[in-house]
Write a protein that binds this DNA or RNA. Structure first.
Length: 187
DNA sequence: CCAGTGATTCTCT
DNA sequence: GAGAATCACTGGC
């Protein structure tokens, strides 16, 4: 039996959770791998979708911690977040990349690739590889069809500024697994 | 580097 | 409500 998160684990500060999720294992219907890159988005954070309050799109970010916030971006891609903090906080961790482990063949089909590279190295790619879309918005990531298990202790973690944002660009709220070949970009 | 892509949100009437 | 701006990205030059 794999280890599980203790009760209330996801109700910690979002930057702490973003760091802690590096090395955690995420799967959807048995397809996935180890998370190697995350970013934190908090309520009082100009780069966060929740900065201007609750809307139809970001409602899941105000829901229970440990659940998914899935949104569409640029009209073509989905991005996955882990909701964090006490109920109504409006904070979440963007899952930016994972190291493909189980269901690699399935990921290759979904991504239209034949090689092992770039399968889930980026938030849009990751969702395409795992088959994550709108119907997963708000679902509990620690329960079927998802599974999420804690990282081993002592992993080397990289820290840096977040990617692709135009506000609060200086905040070092991006985290990565040092040495991983599956990061979306170098730190 | 830069265009594609369309939902969501903003900013006025 | 309507029109405009924005956008937590990706793939191809």
């Amino acid at each position: 039996m794999l280890a599980s998160f203790p009760p209330g684990y996801f109700q910690q500060p979002v930057v702490d959770l973003a760091r802690a999720l590096i090395g955690a294992t995420l799967t959807l219907e048995g397809v996935g791998g180890m998370i190697v890159e995350t970013e934190a988005y908090d309520r009082d954070d100009p780069a966060s979708h929740t900065f201007r309050g609750q809307t139809a799109r970001n409602a899941a970010m105000f829901g229970p911690a440990g659940h998914a916030y899935v949104y569409r971006i640029y009209g073509m891609y989905w991005c996955l977040n882990v909701v964090c903090g006490e109920l109504g906080r409006g904070a979440a961790v963007l899952i930016r990349a994972l190291a493909p482990d189980v269901g690699i063949a399935e990921m290759q089909v979904r991504r239209g690739l034949t090689g092992p590279k770039g399968l889930a190295s980026g938030p849009g790619r990751l969702c395409q590889a795992l088959g994550i879309a709108r119907e997963h918005d708000g679902l509990d990531l620690t329960d079927m069809p998802f599974a999420l298990h804690p990282a081993p202790a002592g992993l080397p973690i990289l820290t840096g500024p977040r990617i692709g944002i135009t506000k609060a660009v200086e905040q070092p709220w991006r985290f990565g697994l040092a040495g991983s070949p599956h990061l979306s970009r170098r730190f």
